[in-house]
């Protein structure tokens, strides 16, 4: 599903994001990317989203070499990738329902499908009754659930999460993790960058540890690594 071959990203100011990364993520995997600040987690996420171009090496997502994609094709690549951020990034002037429907509207989904899928996804993330609320009327956990609903409403095969629990208390965070686990069990590949040691230890999934732009550890099933 996702292949990284000798991927290096050097920023224009000379600082190194990641160096010579080789990583293969299979369909249906749940992968934690862990590491301290500056280890290259964010760079890796941005490379996957094609927000950044690798300086060398190539990235293949869903059998498409992303470095060969033209600017016009990037939107179609991103339709395969749901994204969740630490800061939720909801539109404050739209309701929960509209925030989720927005993701479908911008890829020009028919109204009929929007009306069918949005309530279903809201029910899935446990916000069935919050459709008319505005983001500022929701708790942090509910806001992240809304963001999650928005990320999966178009049914992307891959979900990329950048510190999705970073702004949440442990209990709420745990709720989100269970939701992600459910989504993963339905067949969605999940790549999640995180600092949260407890979560990684409890989930017992694949863990890729980055340090100074290199992969220093990659275990099929395990916990957080102290080296990082």
């Amino acid at each position: 599903m996702i292949w990284l071959n000798n991927v290096t990203k050097t920023y224009p100011n000379g600082s190194r994001g990641v160096e010579d990364l080789n990583l293969h993520i299979e369909k249906g995997d749940f992968v934690f990317i862990v590491g301290s600040s500056g280890s290259g987690k964010s760079t890796l996420i941005k490379l996957l989203l094609k927000e950044l171009e690798p300086t060398s090496g190539d990235i293949t997502i869903n059998r498409v070499k992303t470095n060969e994609l033209g600017r016009n094709q990037v939107p179609y690549l991103r339709r395969n990738l749901g994204v969740v951020f630490q800061d939720f990034r909801l539109l404050p002037n739209k309701t929960v329902y509209e925030n989720v429907a927005f993701a479908m509207r911008v890829i020009e989904a028919p109204n009929r499908i929007i009306r069918r899928n949005v309530p279903a996804v809201l029910a899935l993330v446990g916000l069935g009754k919050k459709g008319r609320s505005y983001p500022n009327q929701l708790s942090g956990g509910e806001q992240q659930r809304t963001a999650l609903a928005r990320a999966i409403v178009n049914n992307p095969p891959i979900l990329i999460c950048d510190e999705p629990t970073g702004n949440l208390d442990p209990e709420t965070a745990w709720g989100i993790m269970q939701l992600l686990d459910d989504i993963n069990k339905r067949g969605t590949t999940i790549v999640m960058a995180t600092h949260a040691r407890d979560i990684v230890d409890d989930m017992q999934k694949r863990v890729v540890t980055l340090k100074q732009g290199h992969i220093v550890r990659d275990i099929k099933k395990g916990g957080y690594c102290d080296e990082a």
């Binding site: 989203l49 600017r71 016009n72 939107p75 179609y76 690549l77 991103r78 339709r79 994204v83 990034r89 539109l91 927005f102 993701a103 911008v106 890829i107 020009e108 928005r150 178009n154």
Partner: peptide, 16 residues
């Protein structure tokens, strides 16, 4: 810009 940012992440085309 927040809206545009989200639009880009969910795969809206530039023309959209």
């Amino acid at each position: 810009r927040v809206e545009i940012n989200i639009m880009k992440y969910v795969g809206a085309t530039d023309w959209f």
